[in-house]
């Protein structure tokens, strides 16, 4: 599971049959200090997370488990909206922001 911030939406009418009512968000991965951590990817928004929200997302084939269909070709799905991140500053040394 990773943190990310929702920075956009992808509109796609033609898509896999099992993703017909799934919406796709553009998410920017971030670290526990909310710094950018890698390039944006596209994830299925299965819990109605909104613009600008910080979320948790899962990758790989587990990403299809939250969806109603038996199978769904998604490799990233948002599974939680973050209310708060508590991090012990001692334990979380400042990570250099990855490009």
């Amino acid at each position: 599971m990773f943190f990310a911030k929702i920075i956009g939406t992808v509109w796609a009418t033609v898509k896999d049959e099992h993703l017909q009512n799934a919406s796709f968000e553009i998410i920017q991965p971030i670290d526990a200090n909310r710094n950018h951590a890698g390039k944006p990817i596209i994830a299925v928004n299965n819990i109605g997370a909104g613009e600008g929200e910080t979320v948790m997302y899962i990758t790989a084939s587990e990403a299809s488990i939250p969806l109603p269909a038996e199978m769904a070709p998604t490799d990233a799905t948002i599974v939680g909206i973050v209310d708060r991140i508590d991090v012990d500053p001692e334990l979380n040394k400042e990570m250099p922001t990855k490009k």
């Binding site: 993703l19 070709p73 490009k99």
Partner: peptide, 29 residues
């Protein structure tokens, strides 16, 4: 995880055609 590619030696599938993007946040590099 599609009917077409199930149990096949396939690790990448085109599963959507993009109509449009709305980008409102800031993206990294």
């Amino acid at each position: 995880q599609t009917k077409l590619t199930h149990n096949k030696p396939i690790d990448a599938v085109v599963m959507a055609i993009v109509d449009k993007l709305d980008v409102f946040g800031e993206a990294a590099g």
